[in-house]
Design a protein around this nucleic acid. Structure first.
Lengths: 238, 238
DNA sequence: TTCCCTTTCTGACTTATGTCATTTTTTTCC
DNA sequence: GGAAAAAAATGACATAAGTCAGAAAGGGAA
């Protein structure tokens, strides 16, 4: 794997992802300040942005590409908490809570990602009440999502969880779709299993069932969702 | 069950729980304002504070007693997300996120709980940056806790999860202990199973194993932790 | 106290899911 | 384009944990 990091330069105002980013709560001049203080790096697939247990020095903003955010179980198995994509902000929770990172982040593909030093981020948080509100809202909402994930993990079968996961991944991978072509999920079976919270072999077997049932098709590693409502029914989603 | 609600009056400044509450970030006069705008109610065991899916009208602050916060799975099974106790603040996340409640809250014993209307709470949030920071920090930290819970739920055995749950419940029930007497956990087996995320029968069987191993003793429904480090070892906690 | 209803407990059985070992296919990278 | 490495797939098997049914015990109300 090539690991040499490459730097580049992108103005926030020109960032394709800016509109869907949390930073869109900032005024123009505040955004300019952010833009002038950040650095921008091209990462190769498989590079680590930060490691669980270390102390945050700033936040990461994804300009391009996807990143998996995961936690290691006591036996070293990854539990993927979320897949972040363009416009996603990473590492700010640990920063705000003054905790060490409790998750790790690794690029799933070649990525362009900006880094914003701690002081700049916290300054924006203190000086822009709209930005503060935006973050607060986001974080509170995310807690609701986590309660739901926890409940699903505790109560639903692997089959149901896989169906739900595939449906949710449509949003994550929808952005890549060319002009309302079909959405393809490009993840290793291992990563998919670590989202669902199951063994890789179990995941593969269930995926085959879904193929037989006509819910999905696969081409190599890529999974294409063919019948969302079939999946929703399988998942017992109301 | 007796359900007639009874009102009472407690000043925040005189509240025994105030020191450990999120409100301790407020200045004296701001706290007085809160105090003057809240109402205080005595709830009987088993009463509902709020229901999943409804819209929040304010926040609840526990002066006395314990409350279970849970989410219902699609088949109606409760997943208990947390047990709140004296000083705990409930329902503010949905309020801030402008969501409906995604959990329900029910008293586990007779409780005294104050209610603070939406406007008062949001006003405090906007006008006290220290309170705002306190909440923000709390919520960000809680997200870290949730990642860990999710990982445990996905990767650990029921036995490990029960051990971890019992150890964590020591904090919740420690407050009731008389003068460094032993801590007793007073929950139905059903509720305990719904925290751990397992069937009641499985929970009972594992609890018996823990009794045989000398980790816990029971007296009726009450569980007393006798050997925390034995539990920690069983849980594979480092 | 005694009754009644809830909760706790026990046993027998089923099954979903994990584990291990091996083969086949895909992807990566020179 | 082709070799080597990584990932995906398959089969056989083990078992943790769920379900169902019924018995015993506990706790509140009169």
């Amino acid at each position: 794997m090539r690991t040499k990091t490459q730097h580049t330069s992108i103005a926030c105002a020109a960032c394709r992802s800016q509109s869907q980013s949390l930073f869109n709560a900032l005024h123009k001049d505040q955004l300019t300040n952010i833009s002038e203080n950040k650095s921008c790096t091209v990462y190769r697939k498989g590079q680590i942005l930060f490691h669980e247990g270390t102390r945050p020095l700033g936040v990461f903003c994804i300009n391009q590409g996807k990143v998996k955010v995961y936690k290691l179980g006591y036996d070293g198995k990854e539990q993927i908490i979320s897949i972040a994509r363009e416009g996603g902000l990473l590492g700010y929770k640990a920063l705000i809570a003054e905790d060490t990172y409790n998750v790790s982040a690794e690029t799933l593909e070649d990525c362009t990602i900006c880094f914003l030093p701690k002081s700049t981020f916290l300054h924006a948080l203190q000086n822009s009440s709209s930005f503060n509100e935006r973050i607060m809202k986001q974080v509170c909402h995310e807690l609701g999502t986590m309660s739901e994930k926890l409940t699903d993990q505790a109560q639903r079968s692997v089959r149901e969880r896989l169906a739900i996961t595939l449906l949710k991944l449509r949003d994550t991978y929808g952005i890549d779709a060319h002009e309302d072509g079909p959405i393809e999920i490009n993840l290793t079976r291992d990563d998919l299993a670590n989202i669902v919270g199951t063994a890789t072999e179990t995941l593969i077997r269930l995926l085959n069932e879904f193929k037989k049932d006509g819910y999905v098709t696969t081409k190599g590693r890529k999974i294409r969702i063919e019948d969302p409502s079939g999946l929703a029914k399988t998942a017992n989603l109301y």
